[in-house]
Structure formats: C-alpha cells, structure tokens
Simulated assay, not measured.
Amino acid sequence: MPLDEASTAIVARIDETMARIGTEITDPAEARLLTATPPEALANPTPVGSVEDRTIPGPHGYEVPVRVYRPLDESADPPPVMLFCHGGGWVLGDLDGHDGICRQLSNRVGCVVVSVDYRLAPEHGFPAPLEDMYAALVWTAAHGDDLRVDPTRLIVAGDSSGGNLAAAAALLARDRNGPPIAFQLLVYPVVDHDFGRDSYVENGSGYPLSADLIRWFWDNYADESVRLNPYATPMRAPDLANLPPAHIVSAQYDVLRDEDEAYARRLRDAGVTVSLRCYPGAFHGFFGFGARLPVARKAFDDAVRQVRAVLDTRVTSARR
C-alpha cells in the first residue's frame, strides 16, 4: 500500500531534517539543536489530570528526570502505571518531544505515565540509558503509595530506541529478579542490528529513519564489541522465555519492520503472548500523528485495546 498524500507530506518534511543527520551533520549536539521540539508544538496540549516534573534516584548517584502524567479520569483506584521511554536513537529526544503521546496514553489507558528522561549517547552510551530506565522501573514499582498507583499493573513502553530500552528493561527485570511487569508496549522498537534485512534494502532511504541514520545511532550508542549483549540488542538474547506479554507496532515503510516481525516470532516461540500489527502505508514515527493520519489513530486504538485487555484481566483475576 503506498503512502497516502498526508503521509507523503509528513515524510518529506521530516526527511528534510533527518536526512542530514548522520551524514552531513555528525555532531550529536548540533543534531539535538536541529531536532529540538519547537515551543509552538507544546501549545494547547491535550488536557490531563496533572503533570509533574521531578527527579528520582538513578545509578551511581545520578538523579533521573521524569515527568509524571495523571489521567483526567482516575476511575481506577489506584490506577495502573506505565513507564515510558522516548525514541531518538539513544542520541536525540527528550520529554517534550513525546509529551503528546504520553498525555494520550495516560487518558486513553487510564494510567499514570512516568516518562523517563534517560541520559543520551554518545556522552552516555550503553548501558547508561538502560540503567536509567531500569532504575526508574525499580523506583516506580517500590513507590506505588507515593505515586498513588497499582504497581502490580506496571507496563513498560517506548518507541524506536525507547522500545529497545523497554524490551531490554523487561529482560533485565527477569534476569535480576526485578519488579514484575504486566505488559510491554513496543512501538517499532530497535531490537537488532542486522542491516542486511529486506526492510533495510526496501526502506533504507527516503523515510524518516534511513539505513545511514540507524547506523549512526548504533555507532553512538554501542560499539560492535558490545552489540551482541542482549541488553543492547534484545534479539540476540539466547532465551526470551518468561517475559511479559507484548504488543508490537510496526510499519510497512520502516527499516525496522523485519526485525520487529522476527522478534515477535521469537517471543511466540518462547511461549510469550505477543500481538504484532504491521500497518500498511505507515512509516517509522507515524504513531504520534493521530491528528492527521487515520492509520496512526488505528494503531493507537489497537495499542490501547491490547494494553487495557491485559490490565482488565489482571483486575478480574485479583478479585476472584
């Protein structure tokens, strides 16, 4: 299915900026300035119950900034909690860039969202961003009373490199006997570094995440000596059993499409309940364009439905 007119316009506008990063622009600080969220994009935000910026204890004394969103309707008492990790190739991005998605997730799922402003590469390469995410996971699970949430209904979520960190945090929690996680919401996550897959060949240029750009992201995040570490590359984990159920969103015109499908297969083979939705006519980054793209609204609706189904099941089981 080809890109529709609205998607084509969005892709062209994004590509004007992103095509320069990793090729013409290789300094991360300059790339961050170029991709910073403009103030007008934060005007007229989706109303939520409340928003609070705070810091929580991180690794080695580092204080991790987080932004806590409460939904407009807190009919659940206490509500579930979602730990969200933004995308940006581990190098770009911040809390503001995913403010809109977090507000919508909080309202639509009916959960408190804790958005994590993890340290960025290359200044802080692997495993620093993951350890920040994991510290936020442990803190969130231990502070249910403080957050006024139900930590037994804890979700990890993220898009792109944030999806990588969410998936890796689930692996860490399993292997470290960490907090139980109810669900993984992985939106076109980076789970491998095999640049020879068909989706890299088909979608390697002309889209928001090019083959050159993802290579640049990897080069900044983790050198080749550590990329086989499963906490850097979840696809390379020898065993994916006993992980939380997952919903994976992928896009037809995305270099990551094939690895996301392969990761879903590996999860299923390991006995993990997983749903995968690959959206025709969609591109990497489409999930946040619900105001303009029907396919994004569909993907968001599907994701919310999958999350709520698992959370509702856990509530029903707890009441028996």
Score class of each variant (00 low, 15 high):
M1N: 03
S7P: 07
I10E: 08
A12W: 03
D15P: 10
T17C: 02
A19S: 14
I21M: 09
G22R: 01
T23A: 06
T23L: 13
I25E: 04
E30Y: 06
L34T: 01
T35R: 10
P38Q: 07
L42E: 09
N44R: 12
P45K: 06
V51Y: 10
E52H: 07
R54Q: 08
G61R: 03
Y69D: 05
L72V: 12
D73C: 08
D77L: 06
P78C: 12
F84D: 11
W90Y: 12
V91G: 05
V91H: 00
L95F: 00
D96G: 04
H98E: 08
S106T: 09
V113K: 13
V114S: 06
S115T: 05
R119L: 00
A128N: 11
E131M: 07
D132H: 01
M133V: 12
H143N: 14
G144W: 15
V149I: 13
D150F: 09
P151S: 09
T152E: 09
R153D: 10
V156M: 02
A157H: 06
S161L: 05
A170Y: 14
A173K: 12
A173T: 04
A173I: 05
R174M: 03
R176W: 10
N177G: 11
G178T: 03
P179R: 02
P179F: 04
A182W: 09
V187R: 07
P189A: 01
D192H: 00
H193P: 13
F195Y: 10
R197E: 00
R197M: 10
V201R: 12
E202Y: 08
S210C: 12
A211N: 04
W218E: 13
N220P: 13
E224P: 14
E224N: 14
L228P: 13
P230L: 14
A237Q: 07
P238N: 04
L240W: 01
N242P: 13
L243F: 08
S250E: 08
Y253P: 00
D254T: 03
V255L: 00
L256G: 13
A264L: 00
R265I: 00
L267R: 02
G271K: 15
V272K: 02
L276N: 07
C278Y: 04
A282D: 09
A291Q: 12
P294L: 09
R308K: 14
A309S: 08
V310D: 03
D312G: 02
T316F: 14
A318Y: 14
R320M: 02
R320K: 15
